[in-house]
Amino acid sequence: MDYALIWYGLIGLAVLIYVVLDGFDLGIGILFPKATEESERDLMMNSIAPVWDGNETWLVLGGGGLFAVFPLAYSIVMPALYAPLMIMLLGLVLRGVSFEYRFRTKRGKFIWDTSFFVGSLAAAAMQGIMLGAMLQGIEIEGRSYAGGWFDWLTPFTLFCGFATICAYALLGACWLVIKLPNELAERYYGVAKRWGLALVFCIVIVSAWLPLSQQIVSQRWFNLPNSILYFTVPVMAVICIWQLFKSLNNHRAVRAYLFAIGLFLVSAIGFSVSTFPYIVPFAVTYSDAAAPDSSLKFLLAGTAFLLPMVIAYSAYAYWVFRGKLKHEEGYH
């Protein structure tokens, strides 16, 4: 059995779950300045306070998983993305502590409101930049990174950073529509539409930019007969976008949220068909980077039943806190 391939899929799944879950979480941080009053900000914060730690753990799993099963990829990618990674981590520190701190002070509340916003924005932008830097390709020599310190900083990666901000803000707005009390929620349908529009624009640009700049990618997408298969991806994207806006117009919050996630899924498929089988695009494949089978099997044995359990009790935690928020809730 190709254990490395299974792990390639599992790590991909962890990253996807991370993006979907922490996406709305970071998105709320990005939308934080949109709130008009303090009580609204309190509600926004409380809508994610019980779950944010769990959401972020998927990021730890993505990184830790890479270390465990593709140590070579981990040891190349981390130094290659050094600066954006460090900024992302600092951003996550700044926003993570705000959850508790802002309820511990009155005078200093604005500081933690700001740090929640800035931290979320920085983390989102850096994640996009890192994604862009991966798509752009990473230069290696032997078993280590060999590119320059600013290879990650190009117009393309910056644009990807912007796209990610839009995507997370869209998810955040959809989440708020679901969780906020009705009188506050209304406004976020419009917010979701605006960010959704920006996201669609970004997706179109990136889809054109990538094949134009990466030969490997364009060869894959524009070669018959593969193209026929590949082009189901944009078709699915169009369906998701159309449904997303339709649901937003009809004020169907959960449906809108699900189609926004669908759009993420399609983008993830687009990403992986463009880069597969590389794990460090376009230098190291997943099988080159894999740890020996004994390591892969050892971790897989536990993962096979731990991961479903994790998903089950995480879902339970969401279930406990289901429904719209009330003003007086939260233990603070």
Binding site: L61, Y74, A291, P292, S295, T303
Partner: peptide, 16 residues
């Protein structure tokens, strides 16, 4: 890179 195959799975179990 060198210790990943051994330490990685242990940390993986820590996460999971």
């Amino acid at each position: 890179d060198k210790t990943g195959p051994i330490l990685g799975p242990l940390m993986g179990y820590e996460i999971l």
